[in-house]
Design a protein around this nucleic acid. Structure first.
Lengths: 148, 148
DNA sequence: TTGCTCCTCACGTCACGTGAGGTGGC
DNA sequence: TTGCTCCTCACGTCACGTGAGGTGGC
């Protein structure tokens, strides 16, 4: 506590987290954090081989997870995050975001349409199966009644 | 034409198709046919190493493709097709089908719900991005006007 | 010999899960 | 020595796509 700064993973002081803590905080597994690092989305500092997650990494991770929830691939998310550094005014970034979001919405509307259609088809299969069972179980009951 | 029966891939005579023809007829690639065979869904006859597809295989493939369109995994489809041979009365098969179909419909309704939510979220992001751009482009235009 | 169809591996895709096997400091 | 956390490979998942490299019959 005397030196205070480079004192390792003192939680709360500098918000420096180990991989376990970061994973718990973010609601993901350690494997996920290592995977995103491998893909170049985050770059936590290292103390020897051990990863240290600062507030910057946690913030990026929250953005990444939001992107994932919205259905973007990690490649797309990486491209978007990379724009942040190259584009300090964020004009290009926001315009790109708008394009991607609009595309994604189109895609989702198409998916929704496909789901509606599949549900209709499944519904009729369901009814046919029920009718078939009714017919054949009625037959079986008839036979059971005869035997009784 | 004299012998007529085991005369190889004579199309139309016995509906015996080569892999290329079968693939074209079914609208899939040859790789797909080989893949389903590897997974035990179909078992075309062989003439030496060459695969021969009869009407039975084509019929099975059409069922398989229907199952796929409805969103079932090939494992599930295989389980269902295997019931056909073990269950000559098809009671178990139809009952299993009904269960699976109902499950799948629940799943799709959940997915549809998730899509609705994502669309809402994306919509608000879209609006925020548009507002941001309007504000910043108005600023840029203002500067352009000053310069002009 | 060239060209065509068919074949069998086997790696690549996507986002991780899941061991296996090893290390540093209490 | 045992137990804990962290590490790095690397295979497995799912349904194929896509070469690579080879074969038989016209």
């Amino acid at each position: 506590v005397t030196e205070g700064v480079a004192d390792g993973a003192a939680p709360g002081v500098q918000d420096l987290l180990g991989i376990q803590e970061a994973a718990t905080l973010l609601g993901v597994t350690m494997r996920t954090l290592r995977f995103y690092e491998d893909k170049g989305l985050i770059a936590p500092q290292r103390v020897c081989t051990t990863r240290i997650y600062s507030r910057r990494e946690i913030g990026r991770m929250q953005l990444i997870l939001r992107g994932k929830r919205l259905g973007f691939s990690i490649r797309e998310i990486k491209e978007f995050l990379d724009l942040y550094d190259v584009d300090p005014e964020h004009h290009v970034q926001v315009r790109t975001l708008l394009t991607k979001v609009t595309e994604r919405m189109k895609d989702l509307k198409r998916q929704r349409q496909a789901i509606e259609q599949t549900l209709t088809e499944l519904g009729s299969i369901q009814e046919q199966a029920r009718a078939w069972l009714q017919a054949h179980e009625a037959g079986a009951e008839g036979q059971a009644e005869k035997r009784a």
